[in-house]
Computed example of a mutant assay.
Amino acid sequence: MSKRYSGKCFCGAVEIEVTGDAVAQGYCHCASCRSWSAGPVNAFTLWAPGSVQVVQGKDNILSYNKTPRSTRKWCKSCGGHIMTDHPGFKLVDVYAATIPDYPFTPAVHVHYQEAVLRIKDGLPKMKDMPKEMGGSGATLPE
């Protein structure tokens, strides 16, 4: 049986559950993620859509599309960020902080050319995105 991890927005009105293991985990340094997260870097966990369920507060979720590639979702009561749908990639990004008990084990930094906070952790630093996700696949030095 697959492991399940629960998470919620800042006020707890929206609760989610993820099942199994994330497809990928890492850090995004792009300006959009930094602005959205209000931080110098955003920690992500990517999941197959069927592995992410809203178990409470579905009617409390609002969304915004800055681009057709992403639908960002948050709680309308507290503004707490929940997840971002990436339909073109067939993935859902559940922010690592949203599921605090999930064993976050990042494997990559993406959009590192936009970094405002350099992190020396030995992980690959992608200039933009992996080739299979439409990026150059190029890496940068730490």
Rank of each mutant, 00 (worst) to 15 (best):
M1T: 04
M1H: 10
S2E: 11
K3E: 14
Y5K: 06
Y5N: 05
G7Q: 01
C9N: 01
C11W: 11
G12N: 08
G12L: 09
G12S: 12
G12H: 12
G12R: 11
A13I: 04
A13C: 07
A13K: 15
A13W: 04
V14Y: 04
E15S: 13
I16C: 05
V18Y: 05
T19H: 00
G20N: 02
A22L: 08
A22R: 12
A22T: 02
V23S: 05
V23K: 14
A24Q: 15
A24N: 15
Q25A: 13
Y27T: 07
C28F: 09
C28N: 07
C28M: 08
H29Y: 06
C30R: 07
A31E: 11
A31F: 10
A31V: 10
S32L: 13
S32P: 00
C33M: 09
R34C: 12
A38Q: 10
P40A: 15
V41G: 05
N42H: 12
N42T: 10
N42E: 02
N42A: 13
A43Y: 04
A43H: 05
A43N: 06
F44A: 01
T45V: 04
T45D: 00
L46F: 15
L46V: 03
W47R: 08
W47G: 01
W47V: 02
A48R: 14
P49S: 08
V52F: 14
V52G: 06
V52W: 08
V52C: 06
Q53C: 01
Q53Y: 02
Q53M: 06
Q53F: 00
V55A: 13
V55M: 08
G57P: 10
K58E: 11
D59T: 10
I61G: 03
L62W: 08
Y64V: 11
P68N: 09
R69M: 14
S70G: 14
S77L: 14
S77R: 13
S77W: 10
S77I: 15
C78D: 06
C78S: 06
G79Q: 10
G79L: 10
G79E: 07
G79P: 09
H81L: 11
I82N: 06
M83P: 00
D85L: 11
H86C: 07
G88T: 05
F89V: 00
L91I: 00
L91K: 09
L91F: 05
D93T: 02
V94Y: 03
Y95C: 00
A97E: 04
A97Y: 03
T98L: 06
I99H: 01
P100L: 01
Y102E: 08
P103H: 05
P103C: 04
F104T: 07
T105K: 14
T105I: 00
P106S: 08
P106M: 06
P106Q: 07
V108A: 13
H109K: 09
Y112K: 07
Y112I: 02
Q113S: 14
V116Y: 02
R118N: 06
I119E: 05
K120N: 11
P124M: 00
P124D: 01
P124G: 04
K125S: 03
M126C: 01
M126R: 03
K127H: 12
D128M: 12
M129L: 15
M129N: 04
P130N: 03
P130H: 07
K131G: 01
M133R: 12
M133I: 02
G134S: 08
G134D: 09
G135K: 08
G135H: 08
G135L: 11
S136W: 10
T139D: 01
L140V: 10
L140N: 10
P141F: 02
E142N: 13
E142D: 15
